[in-house]
Amino acid sequence: MNAEITVKRHFHEELDALQELLLAMAGKAERSVDRAIHAIRHSDLSVAAELRNADPEIDDMETQVDERVAGLLALHQPMASDLRFVLAVAKVSNDIERVGDHAVNIARAVRRMRKSPPPPEIRELEEMGLIAQEMLADALAAFVARDPESAQRVRATDDRVDNLRKSLFRIMVSYMLEDPRNIGGGLEILLISQNLERIADLATNIAEDVIYLVEGRQTGAGARSQADHDAGRAAEDEADEDDR
């Protein structure tokens, strides 16, 4: 029987093309994040306009990904790992699109800050930016490599970002209390930190999608609803017994 030969169907080539599209989109989003962090570091006001023009392209690509996903599901009825891959791509593209949006928000906040006095060197902000960028890169690399252990490490890093944001919050509150003229700038800083935290969260989502893709189990917010579902099924089986 020729069943041992692994057949590369044209469908699997389409899956490869889908991944390429996703990675191209991710590349653009990563570049946006990079530019946004540059804007923070160098108070570069032009980045806002630059990113505002670049973002629609990312949105377009997300639409393309969604359309291809729908087509693949309808026409090919993928199963098992192919199915999980297609679903993961849909979720990741959604996350990447939002990463792009957050990068735009950061650049805009930087531009608004030009009216305020320059804030002190904020170590925490820079660190948050670097970590978020790394998390994003690592999550995407884990996706390509289908590596759940890398993905787990990304998940674990999210706590550091949360802690940094909290200490940044305390610092900014004191800074704003010092002088009412600082409030404008302080608020923008807080906004930037929130966006950076969201980027880290999205990277965590992507990491969780990688785990789902490889191991078929849900983690994070999805896992809680799965547990509820299983409990519901057990209840249904018990109800069947009562019916007899």
Binding site: N2, A3, E4, I5, T6, V7, R9, F11, P78, M79, A80, S81, D82, L83, R84, E215, G216, R217
Partner: peptide
């Protein structure tokens, strides 16, 4: 079986990689 089979052979069959 159809979303996350345990055996590689099952996976290969349901995804159409052989059979």
């Amino acid at each position: 079986i159809f979303t996350n089979p345990a055996e590689d052979q099952t996976e290969a069959y349901v995804t159409g990689r052989f059979g």
